[in-house]
Design a protein around this nucleic acid. Structure first.
Lengths: 88, 88, 88, 88
DNA sequence: CACTGGAAAATGCCGC
DNA sequence: GCGGCATTTTCCAGTG
């Protein structure tokens, strides 16, 4: 016995194919992204700076989220009756 | 002067938006992929092995052989008692 | 009242300091480990394979066999044309 | 030929042993850390809160660092003559 | 084409 | 003992 049921082969094939399909789409989009950068470059943009801008916008967002999380964590810890208050 | 033409701002905005859109699609597909694995798991498949299967199908035979040869060489070198591991 | 005794603050401080101290030691060792790999690499070793060797030595034979059997079962199920993959 | 020099076996063994030694030390420290938490718990502390405290102290530090980094990044991007300023 | 940093995956730990 | 979470490890795109 191997832990697989009777019709496992078919199911397995379906699953693997679905995964491979999704991965193929991801690869295509990654390629598309690369091409956008190439096109931008050919229009005179500095690719490095461009990446930096995109990255900063992501980080800004993340920063904002983390702030909220941190705040929540503190509030949560403080709402606990005991040890948290001592620690503050 | 900065080396960019007059409507560079608009162009820049468009570019950044296109990139962010593509990245969003990639995120969604990555999420979809994760869900396929979760679903597979709930159907009794071993996710780790499943990933290994998908990964193996990506490598062509030659690469696989090369990898195994290299790994064998290391293991063999390790099993030798002393400095007898000549580069055969 | 919070369920902690009077000198809980001191105790807490001590505990937190001990934990942070241990974590610092772990960080240092992790760093040392990284350096060993870097050194090995600069001596011409393939780091990826090296990691694989170390990892293989961790698994005992039994686990390795079980893993291979399971992997074989999956690959076998995949190679079958239809739903013939009975749980043997 | 396999990419390994003549005395590779000895060198390899030494490297692997050093790595395994460091990993053993890390395991011991990780164990020690776990025991500190167990001990704390037996002294009436809430382990979950304790972890939260340790983690918050780490995050606080990181947050401060990241703030500086983010600020630096912006300043850096702005000091670039062209595209960055448009993006601001 | 080797290095680096950031994303994805594996592992280990905790509470149910 | 299983699923979710945090930590660690591995992988890969991007850069010089």
């Amino acid at each position: 016995m191997n832990g697989l049921g009777p019709a496992a082969g078919d199911q397995l094939r379906t699953i693997v194919e679905r995964i491979e399909h999704v991965e193929e789409e991801i690869r295509e989009l990654t390629e598309a992204k690369k091409e956008i950068y190439v096109e931008a470059k050919s229009n005179g943009f500095d690719v490095k700076i461009l990446r930096e801008v995109v990255s900063l916008r992501k980080q800004d967002e993340k920063e904002r989220d983390e702030h909220e999380n941190l705040l929540d964590a503190y509030l949560h810890a403080l709402s606990k009756p005991a040890a948290a208050a001592k620690a503050a």
